[in-house]
């Protein structure tokens, strides 16, 4: 099954080309140019990985990361940055980003990280499902 990706960047031309290249690699890509639109999408849809530009107008990448994690803690986020400061990277990882890639990014590296993100998400979802089943079994006293 193809990876379902949400790509967030205020550079629309970047979104257009990057999504085409990712689609050529069999991924199912949705693009949004603002954090606000991304938050709406995440409320309605489930993604295997979300790729976020660290520096955006209105709401920057770190704020977006926090807000996305609040909506769905299992979501796997890869930060893209043109501003590669160590501090920002550490902050992003502390806030729960799965990984950080510097722009211009190598699509092969990004694809690898997306595969990892999907695997991680599947493990988290399986664990959650297992816990739910255990809770149901113990509460019913079967």
């Amino acid at each position: 099954m193809s990876e379902k990706i949400l790509l967030i960047d205020d550079e629309t031309e970047f979104l257009e080309i990057m999504s085409e290249r990712m689609q050529n690699r069999g991924m199912d890509v949705t693009t949004v140019a603002s954090a606000k639109d991304a938050l709406k999408k995440v409320q309605d849809e489930n993604y295997d990985a979300i790729i976020v530009d660290l520096m955006m107008p209105e709401m920057d990448g770190l704020e977006t990361l926090k807000a996305l994690k609040e909506i769905n803690p299992e979501v796997q986020i890869i930060m893209l940055t043109g501003h590669a400061t160590v501090e920002k990277g550490i902050e992003a990882m502390k806030l729960g980003a799965m990984d950080l890639l510097e722009k211009p990014a190598d699509l092969n590296s990004l694809s690898e990280k997306i595969h990892k993100a999907k695997a991680r998400k599947m493990i988290l979802v399986e664990k959650k499902t297992e816990e739910k089943i255990k809770n149901i079994i113990s509460s019913k006293g079967w």
Partner: peptide
């Protein structure tokens, strides 16, 4: 800004 232009050129 330069990184953004490079990223688009790269893609």
């Amino acid at each position: 800004e330069i990184k953004n232009a490079l990223a688009i050129t790269n893609e």
